[in-house]
């Protein structure tokens, strides 16, 4: 069986249900399945000169379906796990393309958020394809019907489908 790198779900089903119900006690929420969503992770060491030096590490993820970038806050932990039969989204962005998108994203963000005179030098320190777990939930309200949601099993953020 093929193995993939994935983040471990931090929030169990019960915690997700409790979390969602705190906003709406009358709704009935049910979790139907877990979905694994693919992202690329890129970590860079950064050096830029200005009046003061700007050194450190910066990292981002690239959505492996839409190519959207996101800044990562802390070093993640990925653990190998067996690939699932269903509920795993296929990768649509190739690794080279993702690398190009990641560099663009990091440079663009740096040019907006930091101040430097010289162009920052980025050195790729680490990269991997990983899967992030999302819970798929059914949200029911009497007289309103039902709606599907995804809940990020690491951060607890949610969004309707």
């Amino acid at each position: 069986m093929t193995s993939i790198l994935a983040q471990k779900p931090v929030l169990a089903q019960e915690e997700v249900l409790r979390g969602l119900q705190q906003y709406d006690r009358r709704a009935k929420v049910q979790i139907s399945q877990m979905i694994l969503y693919p992202y690329y992770f890129f970590e860079y060491t950064l050096r830029a000169k200005s009046l003061l030096k700007l050194n450190g590490k910066v990292a981002c993820t690239i959505d492996a379906l839409s190519g959207q970038g996101a800044l990562a806050d802390v070093q993640p932990e990925f653990s190998p796990s067996p690939a699932k039969e269903g509920g795993m989204l296929p990768v649509a962005v190739a690794k080279d393309e993702a690398k190009r998108l990641a560099e663009n994203f990091i440079i663009h963000t740096l040019s907006q958020k930091t101040k430097f005179l010289t162009v920052p030098r980025l050195h790729l320190a680490d990269s991997s394809l990983f899967y992030r777990p999302f819970w798929l939930a059914q949200y029911r309200r009497a007289a309103h019907g039902q709606q599907q949601l995804i809940v990020d099993a690491v951060s607890g953020s949610y969004h309707p489908l």
């Binding site: 709406d24 959505d63 379906l65 839409s66 999302f134 309200r141 949610y158 489908l161």
Partner: peptide
């Protein structure tokens, strides 16, 4: 569809993921 409080706490940044998962589920 959602209650006011529930709606206000939707994480808008997950819109691209939601769109892709929605398509994936429809295909499945």
């Amino acid at each position: 569809f959602f209650s006011k409080e529930f709606d206000q706490n939707i994480a808008r940044h997950l819109a691209p993921e939601a769109k892709n998962i929605s398509k994936f589920l429809a295909k499945e």
